[in-house]
Design a protein around this nucleic acid. Structure first.
Lengths: 341, 341
DNA sequence: TTGAAAGCGCTAACAA
DNA sequence: TTGTTAGCGCTTTCAA
């Protein structure tokens, strides 16, 4: 790989002049610029970004920590972040936690060691002390994306109003006559969406004076397998729920598997809703009621908050809360289900 | 951020000794090791990976170019690659092409500039001259993942036998009485899977002596929108197909949308099959016949091929072809469809 | 407007 | 076994 010295030699100038031309320095003569660009072209020179980053102290790179890239919502988030950041000259360094909180923490350190200029954080478990500590010590701007980390006061955040949306969706189920409601959630308390959804669910019940039945809220890792297992547990109860609200979208696949296995018809034998809108929700027959949010807008906002701090436009952390929207579909049919259709 | 010099000063040793301890150099006394580790612990030192990479000439990083991270199959591929490579001490630098061939080429250059030690390539369009050129000039090992690039003789490859699988799946449809078959494919000729699927489809027709009708094979960008549009075109034909074979899995979503919109029942009004198995295929009612392959095995093989070259275990490129498997489900019902229940 | 020189933080060659 | 020294490729003073 060609170096800047070779370009300089070929153009008959100093290495520093090559840098000036390539970085758009204002005081450069046309003649020098032309000579340098010709030489660059000739030998196909491309600067070594490690060396440049080392010298500059920053790598023009943004670290993105994502709990699980297989989650289609998160994949879209990463895609949108990447498009926006690349457009502004930053590369994305992706750190996938693969559902493992230990990797959350490792990733913070790793990205720091790679001198990323900023961090966008969608961790598995935001409550880990090691994570809080690692984030607190970072000298670079951080944006939490649908996460809330205690003590990370210097971090910006982009949040969805899960509580409000979940409350509304739950109220609709209650007003349709359902009383035996169940909520499937990710591991209790580990992330902001999980806590907020639970809060919204409970407040809807309270609002209508419907008692929260024991074991009505069940949590597990956000996987299809866990979703299937929890559904089986619910249905094996003496008094199975008439409506299931599924939080994390990966669980929805498992829930549907179990319902199909038992030949239970969604929207007839049982009402169903998901707190994330993913393609299968709308495509399912019957379509499944879901709480939607604009993932690309969230990503754009997060990228903008980060870029503003990287470029010095803004010096202080900000928190932005974005709305959610109930998409009512056939799966959340009213009671009594059996007389429907 | 602490540097190696501070650690050295604190431990009362030379910086090179710190390196030796941390990199597990054999000839290091117990006393020195203890002193260094204590100092490292004390100030929470973590090496700057840019500096180390610059000095070493390699970054312990593998670049992964992926055509579209939103594709669930590719997301799983990236996840599996990441798990395997991280386990061996390499970080993954993800470059998402977002469906844009221009970004394929940019990414090759960018990853090269970041001194990745190797590349795993799942580009949008493998036929671009700029891409071929960029790959040919790379001084690092490359593994093509379900891609075949002309002239990239020094690259290894992991391929699925799409042709064989597609042929088998198509034969099953033909033998079930379907004659008016259509194939939806990604942009013609741009990737190995697209070409191989078309080849398999055509050879199955030839084998049964069924003529290939004009416009029976339609191609477009591999998106839900394109899938929906092509489906609409097919169904508006004078002689619409009785069975549709969908290649790229993102198209399947669009196909289903259009079928639902027209109130056409899969497996009754029309047979359907997809050449990738994704969760919605199995979850759909009725379940959709699909061609499956072991994505995680493909990723593992690719990672292993790359690691073998990075660690010097192997010096030559290898090509591995992995099998596909027809998962026959209710969507590929036999003709005449209308009498079936 | 341009060049010379220093140094980012690390590791490897060489010397002791 | 350990320390000294040089230098990876770049950018940024500083001086001319």
């Amino acid at each position: 790989m060609a170096t800047i010295r070779e370009v300089a030699r070929r153009a008959g100038v100093a290495p520093s002049s090559v840098t000036r031309v390539l970085s758009g320095h204002p005081n450069v003569s046309e003649g020098l610029r032309a000579k340098v660009l010709a030489a660059v072209e000739e030998i196909g020179y491309r600067p070594d970004l490690l060396a440049a980053g080392l010298r500059r102290g920053s790598s023009h790179t943004v670290g993105v920590i994502v709990s699980d890239i297989i989650n289609p919502l998160l994949a879209e988030m990463v895609d949108a972040l990447d498009v926006k950041l690349r457009d502004k000259g930053y590369s994305v360094l992706l750190a996938n936690s693969h559902g493992d909180p230990k990797r959350d923490v490792e990733s913070v350190h790793l990205l720091r060691q790679r001198r990323t200029d900023g961090l966008i954080v969608m961790v598995v478990d935001e409550t880990q002390p090691e994570l809080k500590e690692a984030l607190r010590d970072l000298p670079i701007p951080v944006v939490l994306l649908d996460r809330q980390v205690e003590g990370a006061d210097s971090a910006s955040a982009v949040l969805s109003d899960h509580a409000r949306g979940t409350r509304e969706l739950t109220l609709q189920l209650l007003d349709a006559g359902h009383e035996r409601l169940a909520l499937l959630s990710g591991l209790q308390g580990t992330t902001y969406p999980g806590r907020e959804r639970t809060r919204g669910f409970i407040s809807a019940l309270a609002e209508r004076g419907v008692p929260l039945r024991p074991r009505a809220i069940r949590d597990a890792r956000a996987t299809p397998e866990a979703g299937q297992r929890l559904t089986a547990e619910l249905l094996d109860d003496d008094e199975p729920p008439t409506a299931i609200v599924v939080g994390p979208n990966p669980m929805l696949v498992g829930v549907l598997r179990e319902l199909h296995r038992r030949k239970l018809r969604v929207g007839r034998d049982l009402a169903l809703a998901c707190l994330d809108d993913v393609p299968i929700a709308a495509l399912h027959q019957p379509p499944i009621t879901a709480l939607a949010r604009d993932v690309r807008e969230m990503a754009h906002t997060a990228a903008t908050l980060l870029l503003d701090r990287l470029t010095g436009v803004s010096r202080f952390p900000r928190t932005v809360v974005l709305p959610t929207e109930v998409r009512r579909r056939a799966s959340s049919a009213p009671l009594p289900l059996q007389v429907e259709d």
